[in-house]
Write a protein that binds this DNA or RNA. Sequence first.
DNA 1: CTCTCCGAGATTGCATGCAACGTAGGGCTG
DNA 2: CAGCCCTACGTTGCATGCAATCTCGGAGAG
Lengths: 264, 264
Amino acid sequence: MTRALTSAERALDMLREAILRGELPAGARLGEVELAERLGVSRTPVREALSRLAAEGLVQLVPNRGARVATWTVDELEGVFELRALIEPQLTALAVPQATVADVDELDAVAHEMQRIGAPGPGQDLDALVPLNRTFHDRLVTLAGHPALAAALAGVVHPPIVVRNFHAYDEASLRRSLAHHVEIVAALRAGDPEWARAVMTAHIRNARAVMVRAAAANVLDLGPARPASRTRAENRVLAPEKSWHPRETEHPRETEHPREKETP
Amino acid sequence: MTRALTSAERALDMLREAILRGELPAGARLGEVELAERLGVSRTPVREALSRLAAEGLVQLVPNRGARVATWTVDELEGVFELRALIEPQLTALAVPQATVADVDELDAVAHEMQRIGAPGPGQDLDALVPLNRTFHDRLVTLAGHPALAAALAGVVHPPIVVRNFHAYDEASLRRSLAHHVEIVAALRAGDPEWARAVMTAHIRNARAVMVRAAAANVLDLGPARPASRTRAENRVLAPEKSWHPRETEHPRETEHPREKETP
DNA sequence: CTCTCCGAGATTGCATGCAACGTAGGGCTG
DNA sequence: CAGCCCTACGTTGCATGCAATCTCGGAGAG
């Protein structure tokens, strides 16, 4: 039987998921009391969760000034992609001899499902690609049977997940990206580690190029620039209110005080 | 002026240093009240520090059962070395065009000092190598000007620092290791990134081999094995008592209750 | 009109108290 | 004598209260 989670753990999981899913946008202020009320606990476990998220790099914590969802500069994101480009191809190569037929079939299904959903046309659903993509990479990385490396990767790969905007992909890049998945599956079936490694390298460098271009065009939501003079607008409200009631609190506050919105 | 640190930050820094310096051995139990007394604060900031260290992977935190200094399996340590072998050569290569003459001179001094201190004979002081080694690698990694990658590396490199036992090196491996440092400096001076990358790769794989061999011989202090049935001996006392009074507490406890010692 | 200073309100940092959980030891039963 | 349960103790998890710090509005001087 799996041990009951503590309040702090629940808070940690929910906050992390909310950040990774983009419900808490980069730069959003994380007030302790507000989060505590939402989660139905006191400030103590919330503080603990924020500390741990800060250590994970998902939250920036400034003493006496509170916590906000971490923001990333383009340079930092490039660094992350560099790191992925070093690690993931290696893990992919290691996964090749480990993968069973069932494993490969599963990845195959995910890869083709992604191609279906990502195909241009009325059925296209770019947001649905995000969890599938996460699944694909997670499975592959796990297959390598190298938990320490995988953990290291996961600890660093968070930022780009936040900026996991498939909307930033142009038509050609998206097609390439989805084709890479399928090709990696083919390499797995063929039992060719170097093939798999090469495709994964291309896959990540393709993604990196998309990110860089999107950043240049200011398409990515990186949050307020790091050393920016704090503008009034940093106080934008947390999240789409409706998607965030992890516990039914009996707080029918009449109208959330509507703070000011984006800078023009 | 640098902002004053909070109690939790002080606790975090002292705990991390104590763990990295080996004063708190792997597997040591970390009682909240005991740490709080030592640091002269209440349990709250201690708990916060432990949470963050847990997120960093230096501490294992089990709900309702307390915290202990993290232990690592040989597999995990190998994973860390694999990761270093992927990242550090890359950072070293990047550092080559960035390094100024002054930078290289400094690294040169460190490398030669290490050779002097590590040379066999009466002047040899293996423990003094540890901080110098840390300095050398930190400087080099910083020079690459790639903070994100460097941070990722630092977040993962902790475990081997704990097992930073230069005593595990045999004569030949140690000589090689120290020679590598000097050779890397030479590559920096020559402005040859590929040379530097290659030597760093060799350097890390050499260290990895030492670690694996030492682990096989059970020389490394990895702490109690991970899934081990908890033996009574896990309760061994924290640290060499004398080296650990970061604040003079007025607790002249007559005799620390002498718990039982190692398993035979 | 702009800049500086100041104070009320809001928020965080930390200490403390209490309840819940885990652990260890002793007595009872088979 | 071995094995089990039950109780007492120690430790952790969380809530709450208070002091310290920060934010932000406005008043006043230049």
